[in-house]
Design a protein around this nucleic acid. Sequence first.
DNA 1: GGGCCGATTAGG
DNA 2: CTAATCGGCCCG
Length: 191
Amino acid sequence: MSGNTPIGIEFFQRDPLICARELIGCTFGFGDTAGKIVETEAYAAVGDRACHTWKRAAAREFVSSHAPGTAYVYLNYGMHWLFNFLVKGAQREGFVLIRALEPLEGIPLMRRRRARESLQELCSGPAKLTQALGITGDHHGCDPLIDKGWLLSKPPGDHAVAVSNRIGITLDAEYPWRFFSKGCPFVSFPA
DNA sequence: GGGCCGATTAGG
DNA sequence: CTAATCGGCCCG
């Protein structure tokens, strides 16, 4: 009895910035591994040059043809899988990138997949956490709110959330659309 | 078809 | 600081 409440489709039918902030503190898991979300970023489907929809027709098609909460997983730098939730239904649509987790369950398995011992090296980056959880391109387009094996729930209470610019982008880098747990040692970048 | 670029990471 | 490594997009 965790006291957590499951997250439904309505959660992702809001502004991506709201979703990104609200996901901080939530439990996210796949298979035998899970963690607490401690860092996210929002991307807007329209007017955001850092979002895939800016250049990629396939990304725009993905937004229009999938339900809120659907997993958008893609290969970055030819070797790293990055996981996003699709957000749509409000005026602004887009994605929330999951950037870091505090490891909670399946830690031995995470250590094996990551080939790292340190707790802080398991999920402290968008590509680290997909590797730790076993998420790949096979999961692109699946629905974590419905499909077997996924976990997404919200704990009671509030969380201290800090805000900064998004990391690793050059276009529209000045938008303060990154959210993270203040002072958390499991984030990808302290500030 | 060729060139270039990326929401990153690990290692020197 | 840089290599690794590959799907998209843009151009010709």
